[in-house]
Design a binder for these strands. Structure first.
Length: 121
DNA sequence: CCCTGATTCGC
DNA sequence: GCGAATCAGG
């Protein structure tokens, strides 16, 4: 397909008239792909085609929890060493009345009541 | 499944 | 630069 000024003019005219790519293609004797391709290359206005290609996935970036993010319901379990960069707190919802979430409360309070164990032993 | 247009890809 | 192929939505 040779795109002369005449062809381009026809293309633009038909495109502006609102003809579909298929119609224009038929008119010019080319495939709709050629029409839409040329039209796009010419920078013609986009007709009703809300196609969104290149759907980029929104990636949830891991947010570091710092001290200021802590509230009464965020687990205060320290992750890492406080002196280390990137140190943060767990931040997951805490158990009622406890500063830790279920997961860390289990660790925090394990063997807290040693008296009976020691007494028994 | 048909149509539409947009973008990608090989020539 | 070209258009088919592919993608994507109605």
């Amino acid at each position: 397909m040779v795109w002369n000024d005449d062809n381009i003019e026809q293309l633009k005219r038909l495109w502006a008239e609102g003809l579909t790519t298929g119609e224009i293609g038929k008119e010019l004797g080319v495939s709709k792909n050629a029409v839409v391709g040329k039209a796009h290359r010419l920078g013609l206005k986009s007709r009703p085609s809300p196609i969104k290609r290149g759907a980029k996935e929104a990636k949830p970036e891991p947010k570091i929890r710092s001290l200021v993010d802590l509230s009464a319901h965020t687990c205060r379990w320290p992750i890492g060493d406080p002196r280390d960069p990137g140190f943060h707190f767990c931040g997951k919802p805490t158990l009622p009345g406890k500063p830790y979430c279920a997961e860390h409360a289990a660790i925090a309070y394990v063997s807290s009541n040693r008296s009976k164990d020691e007494d028994a032993a």
